[in-house]
Amino acid sequence: MSRVSVIALALGLAVSSLALTASAATAPSPAITAAVADSNRPQADKDRDTDRKPAEMLAFAGVKAGDKVVDFMPGAGYFTRLFAKAVGPKGRVYSLLPNEIATRSQKAVDGQKALAGDKAYGNIVPLVEPVNALTFPEKVDVVWTSQNYHDVHAFMGAEAAAAVNKAIFNALKPGGVYIVLDHVAEAGSGVRDTNTLHRIDPETVKKEVEAAGFVLEGQDDALHNTSDNHTLKVFDPALRGHTDQFIFKFRKPK
């Protein structure tokens, strides 16, 4: 290979690397800023904003007015309520809880009930579906899952994870986005720590999601924490709320 070819290859790789992180710098839209400032949000959610950086997360996901968004395994609805205000009255947010989690976690069930009964967010539609046969009422623009991808492995296994990723791929519109945010496990650990430390190796997530047909478009390092050595359980008081987390944006090809 000639010197010119080597330089051209290096420049191409550099451009590709920049492309993967470029979307992380997107400024929050007025709709996203208003969603974070929404006075109807529970105080417990607002208290977590400094650590969870919601405006940056929604901007990275590209959530906009009129979008149809799925919050997969929504917990108590921290992001679900934000999505609801960001997409506005012409949009819709599906809070999708797998049956397998509902039967294990009363907290998850209570979270769904709270979302269904919150009149301040009339465009949220709670759903409970079997993880190996997820169905969606319509094609959607964004599927989001936060701090829960590892739970699919921990409670349901690799086959379930593959089924989930494929169902999400099929549910998205062409060009739609799948965001995965989770706690970082030690490099090379695969799914070893999903049930014990509640972490997962980011490289494992990349491989699994790309196997469903997605293309990795970018990542955001806003929740990266170098003081987390990836050996503690995420609920450890010394670390809870401040774990090292990865955020990947995958896109369904058009």
Rank of each mutant, 00 (worst) to 15 (best):
V4H: 12
V4F: 10
V6N: 06
I7C: 11
A8H: 10
A10N: 13
G12L: 07
G12T: 14
A14L: 12
S16H: 08
A19N: 13
A22Q: 12
A25P: 11
A25Q: 14
T26F: 06
T26W: 06
S29R: 07
A31T: 13
A31K: 14
I32C: 06
A35P: 09
A37E: 11
R41N: 07
R41P: 00
R41A: 01
P42R: 01
D45R: 12
D47A: 15
R48P: 00
D49E: 14
D49G: 05
D49P: 02
K53F: 09
M57C: 12
L58V: 03
A59F: 05
A59L: 06
G62Q: 08
G62D: 09
G62P: 07
D67G: 15
V69E: 02
V70F: 03
V70N: 02
P74N: 11
A76K: 11
A76M: 09
Y78G: 02
Y78T: 04
T80W: 07
T80S: 15
L82P: 00
K85C: 09
V87D: 00
P89H: 10
L97N: 04
A102S: 13
T103V: 15
V109A: 05
G111W: 05
Q112V: 08
A116M: 11
D118M: 09
N123F: 02
V125E: 03
L127Y: 02
V128C: 01
V128S: 05
V131E: 04
V131K: 01
T135M: 06
F136E: 03
E138I: 05
D141M: 03
D141G: 03
V142L: 08
V143F: 10
W144M: 06
W144G: 00
W144H: 06
S146L: 06
Y149T: 04
H150Y: 04
F155T: 09
F155I: 13
F155H: 13
E159I: 13
A161K: 02
A161P: 00
V164F: 01
I168A: 05
F169P: 03
F169C: 10
F169W: 15
N170D: 15
A171L: 10
L172T: 04
G175V: 07
G176K: 01
G176E: 04
G176S: 07
Y178F: 13
V180Y: 02
V180C: 08
D182N: 13
V184R: 01
A187H: 09
A187C: 11
G188P: 00
S189D: 05
S189W: 04
T194L: 05
T196S: 15
L197D: 00
H198C: 03
H198D: 01
R199E: 02
D201A: 01
T204D: 01
T204G: 00
E208F: 09
A211V: 13
G213E: 04
G213F: 04
Q219H: 15
D220I: 02
D220M: 14
H224K: 15
S227T: 14
S227H: 15
H230G: 06
K233N: 11
L239I: 15
R240P: 11
R240F: 10
G241H: 07
T243G: 08
Q245P: 12
Q245W: 05
Q245M: 15
F248C: 03
K249S: 09
K249C: 07
F250E: 02
K252Q: 04
P253F: 08
